[in-house]
Nucleic acid binder design. Structure first.
Lengths: 214, 214
DNA sequence: CTAAAAATTGACGACCTGGTCAGGTTACAG
DNA sequence: CTGTAACCTGACCAGGTCGTCAATTTTTAG
C-alpha cells in the first residue's frame, strides 16, 4: 500500500473488500467454512475469482477477518451493564440490545454460531480472551448487585449463558422459532414479545408467590 | 431383502448401517452437510467408500436418516409435561431432561443445530410438523396452568424458545460455555448448576420482591 | 503526456468430490 | 457340495475445489 496514493487506494480497495466481506458473510453463514465456495462468493460479488485472491490470501483469510470484525461489532452493539443501574431495567436493555442485534445481523449471528458449533477452529485466542474478559466484567456487575441484595443469588455465569442462548435462538434457529410461533417470518412485534417474555420470566419468575394448590 | 435370509441380513446390514450412521453423525456434526466428506466417513468406519454406497444411495440419504432418527430419539428423551403436575417440578424435570440429553448426545445436538442454521434444507415436512405438534402440546399445558392461576401469564411459545435456547447452548456452543465458566470441559456438576440457575431464575425470578432502593 | 503503481482477469494445475460399476468374495439354504 | 443372494471393493469418472500466474488494463502522481 503506497503512502502517496492512499485516497484512491482506499476507495477501490475499501469498496471491493467491503463487498467481498459482505457477500462472504452471507455464503459462510449459509454453508459453514468447509461448505462455502470461493466461486460462489466471487459470483455474488460480481468479481472474477482471481480478483478475490488479489485482496485476500486465502479462504481462511476472508473468514478470520469476518469473525474478528463481527466480534468487535458485537460488544459495540451490546448494552453495557453498570452497577449503578436498576437491575431489572439494565437486564431489559441488555436483552433488547442483544435481540435487536440478532434481528439486524442474522448472517453474522449464524456465521459465528456455525464457527462455534464446528469447534471454534478459526476463533483466535485473542478474540476468545476478549470475549472472556467481557463476560467477566458482566459477571462482576451481577455479583455486585447480589452482594447489595438487589438481585437474588444465582450463578451469574450460567445466568448469562441462559440469556445468550435464549436470544441467540431467534437468529440462529429462525426456522424453528417460526414454527414454534406459527409464523412465516418474525416481525418486530414478535421480537418485542420475545423481550417481554424473557425479561418478565427472569425478573419476576413464572410461578406466583402465593401458589394455590390445584 | 430376501425373506428367508432375514437373520444374517439383519446382522451384517444392521451392524454396518449402525456403524456408518454413528461415524457419519460425528462428521456431519463437525463439518455440516456441505463440508462433510464421504471419504472421511468411510475412513472412520473402516470401510471402503464404495461399501458406504452399498448401504446408502447418497450423502443426503445418510444425512436425512440421521435427522429423522434423532428427532425420534429427542421426544423420547424429553420429559413430558402434564397438567396435573406441579408446574415448578415439571419445569425442573423438563430442563433437566433436555440438558441430560444435550450432555449425552452432543453430536446429534450439534448436527441438528447445523442443519437448522443452514436453513433446515433437509428437515422433512413430516419431521417439522411432528415438532410443531409437540410444541403445541407443551404450550397447551402451560396455557392451562396459567388459566388455573398456577403460573404467571406469559407467552408460552416464547417461553419454550427461551428454555430451548438456554439448554441448547451447553451442547452446541460448548467452547463458549467453557470459556464463560472458566472451564476446560463441562462436568456433571456444571450441568447441575445450569439446571439450578435456569430453573430458579425462571421459577422465582431474579429480582427480590421487596427491592431496596440503592 | 508518461511512467509506475494498482487493479483486473482468463486460463490453468493439482488435487479432491460424490458417485458408479464390474468383477470379485462370503455366507447360507437345501 | 452347490447355487444364489448378499456383501465387498479397487479402479475409475466427470465435474468441482482452492489457489496461481502472467499478461493486460486502469488509475494516479508529477
Amino acid at each position: 500500500m503506497a503512502r502517496t496514493t492512499e485516497k484512491l487506494d482506499e476507495k477501490i480497495r475499501a469498496r471491493n473488500i467491503r463487498i467481498i466481506l459482505d457477500v462472504a458473510t452471507d455464503v459462510f453463514s449459509r454453508k459453514g467454512f468447509d461448505g462455502a465456495r470461493i466461486a460462489e462468493i466471487a459470483e455474488l460479488a460480481n468479481l472474477p475469482k482471481a480478483n478475490i485472491y488479489y485482496y485476500f490470501s486465502s479462504k481462511e483469510d476472508i473468514y478470520s477477518t469476518i469473525i474478528t470484525n463481527l466480534i468487535a461489532g458485537w460488544d459495540d452493539a451490546l448494552s453495557k451493564l453498570r452497577v449503578d443501574q436498576d437491575p431489572a431495567d439494565a437486564l431489559r436493555q441488555y436483552v433488547r440490545a442483544k435481540l435487536v442485534y440478532a434481528r439486524e445481523n442474522p448472517r453474522e449471528s449464524r456465521l459465528f454460531a456455525s464457527e462455534i458449533i464446528q469447534g471454534a477452529r478459526f476463533l483466535s485466542k485473542k478474540d476468545r480472551a476478549h470475549m472472556r474478559a467481557a463476560t467477566d466484567r458482566y459477571v462482576a456487575v451481577l455479583d455486585q448487585w447480589m452482594q447489595e441484595g438487589r438481585m437474588r443469588k444465582i450463578d451469574a455465569r450460567h445466568f448469562f449463558i441462559m440469556l445468550w442462548g435464549a436470544t441467540q435462538f431467534y437468529s440462529d434457529f429462525e426456522p424453528l422459532a417460526c414454527d414454534a410461533l406459527h409464523r412465516n417470518s418474525l416481525s418486530e412485534q414478535d421480537y418485542d414479545s420475545a423481550v417481554d417474555t424473557i425479561v418478565s420470566s427472569i425478573v419476576s419468575g413464572v410461578i406466583p408467590v402465593a401458589q394455590p394448590n390445584r
